[in-house]
Amino acid sequence: MTTKEATFTYTLRLGDDALILGHRLSELCSKAPFIEEDLALTNIALDMIGRAQAMLSHAAELEGKGKTADDLAYRRPEINYYNHLITEQPNGDFAHTIVRQLYLSAFEFLFYCELEKSKDETLAAIAKKASKEVQYHWQHAMDWTIRLGDGTGESKRRMQIALYELWMYTGELFEMDAVDETLIKAGIAVDLTSLKTQWLNLIKNTVTEATLLMPDDTYMQSGSRKGIHSEHLGHILSELQYLQRAYPDAIW
């Protein structure tokens, strides 16, 4: 695996995370509990889709096969998608949506601050923008976690369930394989080992402030680095890719 090939896979994975989470959040358009929250979630979705566009364009360029970001988004089957399993989990109730955001935005906040130092110029530039955007996402998730955890008996109960149910998807965020190792040596990728403790601290502090309990260690789900997904991704892609599958090469 050359550095360029590894950078392609690495960038593709980051693009897939942003695209699939962006798609999930966009499903909430017009369905949030109230209008300001509708704007918040769709704004976050938009940030994600913007990041996906930037990452997938860069990936397409690195691949050098004349493809575009759209080709990568619309023409790949499930097995060639590398988003983390947590990004494809259903929105569920509002507590699940918020906890998914809590786990992910804390991770992305730490991750993109580090990626700013990447020796791949484009990744570093995208990271500089993403790290600013994701701070607002993190603050949003934190506010809601505290408000709902320290809220009514019902909101607390739902938050606690969501914290437990999504916990098994968090281990995967810190998995690294040959792609990461090659690129860490080249100064391009982020070493996730050191991020894990920081991430746990961020989550613990917020969960405690929200008067909720941290989930116990459990079996961690895995597979997305190899393109193995939960049953949800296929359904997402059938919707996301429908137009290009039904009418190949249709343009706006």
Partner: peptide, 12 residues
Amino acid sequence: ISRFGSTACKAL
């Protein structure tokens, strides 16, 4: 009121 306003660059 909200960290996310009418466009991505604004808060309400």
